[in-house]
């Protein structure tokens, strides 16, 4: 049975406020014993693999995006069996409410949330403001690792199609809206990696033809929360030119920054069909025979050859 949703009025303007919880809500839920019995499970997902160990929300369980969600030998996510084993070990059952938070404006938390949705986990929510907001509010932290009773998680095969795009899907999608969430320098092709991440480059610099450039962090406010609905609408409906009901694909370099944007488009603005292209620029920028556009212009759909 899902845990009751946060009725916070600040979230009411978003399309799916039930996908968000506030720090106050979580603190109260923990005090009320929601973590006992695995009805509510809190996961921390960070970029740095040791941040959790420096102190975390009491009762929160660590999830590492790199070693636990990715398959070691295929460039893909884990399969249903590995996911079930991972979830159960963290005390998650299929009907658990899962709240995810992390560092860097929930960038890695949104990525983990998106992977949970690939497996159709029904109730997974984001802690608004993530780790930074929790710490800024001087809320309780601990270095104690919780002892969790294993959850009961069935083997569910991943269903990629609704929210995940592959390269061929993107090729077929050309002509419909794309959002490029990388930095302006990556978008124009001036550089092929994120500022300060030079080892993750690609052969060519630029963007997928017609993609609008909305760097992911523009959806985040200074305190790590998402911007409010009118601000998000100005970004994605105004600047990017999306229209209600559009079928949208977001991408970045490996699909993690675009998970943050994917969440904003799907749950905050209510676009029903939003996919994250996790192959992103490291695949597209290196793939043979796919078109790119260099420079600041979005470019046009190349005519079929």
């Amino acid at each position: 049975m899902p845990y009751p949703v946060d009725q916070n009025e600040k979230f009411a303007a978003y399309a799916h406020p039930e996908r968000l919880v506030s720090t106050e809500w979580l603190a109260t839920a923990i005090e009320d014993g929601a973590l006992e019995g695995g009805r509510l499970v809190v996961l921390e997902s960070d970029e740095d693999v040791l941040v959790y160990e420096t102190g975390h929300i009491p009762g929160a369980v660590k999830i590492d995006w790199h070693t636990e969600l990715n398959d070691e030998v295929t460039r893909d996510f884990v399969d249903g069996e590995a996911f079930a084993a991972m979830a159960a070990a963290k005390g998650i059952s299929r009907d658990s409410t899962v709240v995810i938070y992390g560092d860097k404006s929930n960038w890695w938390a949104a990525y983990a949330l998106w992977v949970f949705e690939l497996f159709g986990h029904a109730d997974v929510r984001l802690l608004v403001g993530g780790r930074d907001k929790w710490l800024a509010e001087d809320r309780a932290v601990t270095t104690d690792t919780p002892v969790t009773a294993p959850g009961d998680y069935p083997v569910v095969e991943r269903d990629d199609a609704p929210i995940r795009a592959f390269k061929d899907d993107v090729l077929a999608h050309l002509g419909k809206p794309l959002i490029d969430v990388r930095s302006p320098e990556e978008y124009t092709g001036q550089r092929t990696h994120m500022p300060a991440y030079p080892e993750e480059g690609a052969m060519r610099g630029g963007h997928i033809p017609t993609a609008a450039s909305i760097p992911w962090a523009r959806a985040a406010a200074g305190d790590g929360t998402y911007r409010n609905r009118p601000e998000l609408e100005a970004l994605y409906l105004g600047e990017a030119g999306l229209k209600e009901g559009d079928d949208v694909i977001a991408y970045c370099r490996i699909g993690e920054r675009s998970s943050h944007t994917w969440f904003a488009l799907k749950y905050l603005l209510g676009f029903d069909t939003v996919r994250n292209y996790d192959g992103s620029w490291t695949e597209w920028g290196n793939a043979v025979g796919v078109p790119i556009v260099k420079g600041a212009d979005r470019g046009t759909v190349p005519s079929a050859r």
Binding site: V51, T54, D103
Partner: peptide, 9 residues
């Protein structure tokens, strides 16, 4: 920075 424990380590 302290929020980068792996790098600090």
């Amino acid at each position: 920075p302290p929020e980068a424990p792996t790098t600090r380590g």
